[in-house]
């Protein structure tokens, strides 16, 4: 904890979340370092998605705070948090099913360029060459360029996820949250996605990944936090976590 503290971009500070009598999250402290990939793993119901929802403003914590780059995120609207540079890929893809794939990817770029409120009534989409080119480029990266004119609703679940990833990447977020980015993907697609996420890492983007697939976690993560029953039971680099007896018992051993 003593090293590189100045590089921490996201602080989760003593966050508690209760639903009625249920302690979904307790004493959560998290420090995500700039440019690193921080994985959060844990058995089903451990509170991983709740934690992510607290970070992006979908849920308000019962107590505690989330601080991103010196700004308190707690109490902010999702669009405000996004405007600060936090993008999220959902467990169930949140996309625009009735719009063509290309427009799906272009839309968040306008939000990034123009802010949350600005209305551009008098521009023509066809003149937005820079945004369109970048969207097409990203679609090539995720392997969906050939399908750019298809309606997004017609894509397979795996393709939707990859498109959603492109929708986040076009915003060049400083922090990218990925909620099981490879769930429901074939082994081949999973590997493509890992390669893609590694590429993103080279660009210096900070990432938080929630993942079940240990192959993905150990290929990508610089640091792992293990969540069980709403608490962080272990934290460290992948090797340490893999060998931690508590983790083996609570998660790796217990689940299999």
């Amino acid at each position: 904890m003593s090293t590189n503290v100045h590089n921490v971009v996201l602080h989760v500070d003593d966050v508690h979340k209760t639903f009625g009598g249920l302690h979904a999250l307790a004493d959560i402290d998290l420090a995500v370092e700039e440019g690193k990939t921080h994985a959060i793993i844990g058995p089903n119901g451990a509170g991983k998605s709740t934690l992510l929802n607290v970070i992006v403003g979908r849920l308000a914590p019962t107590s505690g705070a989330v601080v991103f780059d010196g700004q308190v995120l707690t109490g902010k609207q999702p669009y405000e948090i996004n405007q600060l540079g936090v993008a999220r890929v959902f467990q169930t893809p949140e996309i625009f099913p009735d719009l063509p794939v290309l427009h799906n990817v272009m839309t968040p770029a306008f939000a990034k360029r123009d802010g949350a409120y600005k209305l551009h009534i008098w521009e023509n989409l066809l003149d937005e060459k820079t945004i369109q080119e970048e969207a097409e480029h990203l679609l090539q990266d995720v392997g969906l360029w050939e399908r750019r004119m298809d309606h997004a609703g017609a894509l397979s679940r795996g393709d939707k996820r990859r498109m959603e990833l492109a929708m986040c990447l076009i915003q060049h977020p400083r922090l990218l949250l990925l909620d099981e980015p490879t769930a429901g993907m074939s082994r081949h697609d999973t590997n493509t996605t890992i390669e893609l996420l590694k590429k993103v890492k080279e660009r210096g983007m900070t990432k938080i990944i929630i993942e079940h697939d240990m192959h993905v976690v150990f290929s990508l993560a610089d640091k792992i936090s293990v969540l069980a029953q709403g608490r962080i039971i272990a934290e460290g680099n992948p090797e340490d976590v893999r060998n931690d007896p508590k983790v083996k018992e609570a998660y790796l051993g217990g689940a299999h």
Partner: peptide, 30 residues
């Protein structure tokens, strides 16, 4: 012109998924 503009694109996006727009940084009400 409105149909072909980014504004029109965001209006269409509102019709299909407001949640995503919110998480993409757009305040849909204005």
């Amino acid at each position: 012109r409105i149909f072909r503009s980014p504004f029109g694109l965001i209006l269409r996006a509102i019709k299909t998924n407001r949640t995503r727009l919110n998480y993409a940084g757009i305040n849909t009400r204005p």
